[in-house]
Every structure is written in C-alpha cells, then in structure tokens.
Computed example of a mutant assay.
Amino acid sequence: MNFFRGIVRAQGQIFLQAGWGPAVFALAAMTVASAWFALAAMTVASAWFALAALAGAAVQAGCALALAGWDDARGLHRLREGGTRAPSGIPGPDPESSRVGARALARSRAGVIPAEVDQGLHGFNGALTGCAAVLACGPGIPAALWTLAGSAVCALIVWGAPKLSWPESLPLLTGPFCLVNSIAVAVAVPFERTQGAVVPLGSPVHDVLAGAVRGAHQVILGGSVLGGLLVLAGMFAAGWRAGVWAAAGTLVGTLAGFVGIGQGPAASGLLGYGAMLVTVALGVAFPARGSRILRIGVPVLAAALTVPLWWVITAVGVAPYTWPFVLVTWTVLALRSRQWRAGEARHDER
C-alpha cells in the first residue's frame, strides 16, 4: 500500500500537492493527453520509489548497526574502567534499551528518506521526464531510453544537490526535469515539437478562458480543455486555497500573454501553466508573511513575470517546459531569504 501511495502521490507533487485527490486527477489528466504519458510517469515513479526506499532502508539499517555497535563498545569500555552493570547484568547501559535507542536515532537520521518517498517527492521529476520523452519521440524504444536515462540523471541531481551546498531555502521543484529535458530536446529532436497543439481561435473572452483551462493541462505537457478541468478539479480537491490560486494563476498568465504576446499562444495554454505553478508555490506551498496585500500581490506579480520570461526562453531556442515557474519562484524565495537574514542581523545588532 505504501508503494502504491508513493508512486501515485508523485504525480500530485508536480503541482506541489501530496494528497490523493490532486494525484488521481493528475493521472487522469495525463491519460487524457496520452495513455503513454500516464504509463511512463507511473513506471518511472515506481522505479525511483523502489530505489529510494531501498536506499533509505539500507541507510537506516547501517545507522542502527553502527549505533548499536557503538553502544556495545561504550559498555565494554565502561567494564574495563570498572563501570557499573546494568540491571540485566551486562556492563554499561541495558542492551535492549541500547538497541531501541539506536533504532530510534537511526530513524531520526535516516527516516527522512522513506518519508519523502511516501509523500511522492522521489519520482515527480522522472514522471515529467517520461511525459516529455513520449511527447518528443512518440511511444517506442527512443522514448523509453530517454525516460530511463533522463529520470536517472534527475534522481542524481536530487540526491547530489544537498551535497553540493545547494541552498536549503530554494527547493529544487521541477528544476532537474527542466535542465535534463531541455538539453535532451536540444540534442535529440526539433524544438518545435514541444510547442503544443494549435487550437482554433475564437472571441477574445473565449480564448482567454479556454487558454487558462488549457494552461492547467500544459503543466503535464497536455493542452486540452478536459485535461485542464481535471487538473483544476484536483487542485480544488487539495483545498479551496490551492484551487483558487491555481485558477487565478493560469488566468493571470493567460491574460497577460494575450495582451503582451498574442492570441495564439495564450489560447493554447502555453502562457498559463508557469503562472499557475508560481501562484500555487508562493500562495500555498511557500506563502509570504506580512500584510494581505503582500501575500496576494507577490504571487500575482510573479505569475505575470512568467510570461515575458517564457518569451525570452523560447526566443533563444530553449524548450521552456516549467523553467519560467522554477526561475521566478527561486528568485522570489531567494529575495525573501535574503530579507529574512537581513532582518535577523538587524535584530542581533539590537
């Protein structure tokens, strides 16, 4: 049950949500885009769930053995020094309590790995990689190789970032997916194949609304109204705040894109998905402290900034994927962390 829960939740983590509702609706939206999307996403999430769980179990067992051995060695040292005996007649601390203490400490040190896996945090970059591979190559051996290799590199980035002093204030988000697959697209396939389907244009109001809904689906490389409605339903299943911020974000991005870039990209949903993820991140997952104007204004302004950033990224010939979301969110969180540190420094001076 934990295995199934982890791989399903990984799909919801694409939208920064760990609950069942967003995950199930995300899988349904993937299936609407392509059944191969859902299959690739679940396969990759399953593989990395298993590997991360095994790694976590190995680390936990190693810590437990090491700590138990350390306790036994400490007890032997106390015997040689003339120390007291435990009630069980064994020198030093009671062996049973030592083993229990070692296991508890091992869990506190290594238990974060199974917890992250259970929440679906291991796998969502790989799941998106599977979708990108199928979109770029179609189902087949090239897509499978792309999925396996790309998701493996994503996993290495997630594993290695903390060891390379990546700032704790900046969550990786979908950064590994963006980095790996933007490079893969540049090497393997024409960039135009990542741009989404062309949709017939209608009235401005219709295109803005339809584009906003399609934008929710573009997060997982889809582009249909039905898929977008499923994604938004999943966000509301996570809670009214997540749903409202998601809907507001994709609407702001689509409207800004309609005015600043053009009706075609806006109606296709290409300008709403980054804005949607930004508002969910800054409005729900990492909300700001302060006045209501600040808590609302920052996510909305950041959502609007994803539109010109999307244009710049595509203009230089890089597959945008969720780069606008990642870069804008990192910038806001970095500025917030810097402001917090400056405030702490001023407080210490006083």
Rank of each mutant, 00 (worst) to 15 (best):
V24W: 12
A28V: 04
A28S: 04
A33W: 07
A33P: 05
A35F: 01
F37P: 05
F37N: 05
A41W: 13
V44Q: 04
V44C: 08
V44M: 12
A45K: 06
F49V: 13
L54M: 10
C63K: 11
W70N: 13
G75L: 03
E81L: 04
G82L: 09
R85S: 09
S88Q: 02
G89S: 02
I90Q: 05
S97P: 01
S97A: 07
S97I: 05
L105M: 15
A110H: 09
I113F: 09
T129W: 07
T129F: 05
C131M: 13
C131F: 03
L135Y: 03
C154R: 09
A155W: 15
G160P: 07
K163W: 06
P167L: 01
L173A: 08
F177R: 14
V180Y: 11
N181I: 01
S182H: 06
I183D: 00
A184C: 10
F191C: 14
E192D: 14
T194P: 01
S203A: 08
L209I: 15
R214K: 08
A216D: 09
L229V: 14
L229E: 11
G234L: 08
R241L: 06
V244Q: 00
A248C: 13
G253L: 03
Q263P: 02
P265R: 00
L277N: 00
V284H: 02
V284I: 05
V284S: 10
A288V: 03
L294A: 12
I296F: 09
A304I: 00
V312T: 13
T322N: 05
L327R: 02
W330L: 07
Q339H: 12
A345K: 14
R346K: 06
D348T: 13
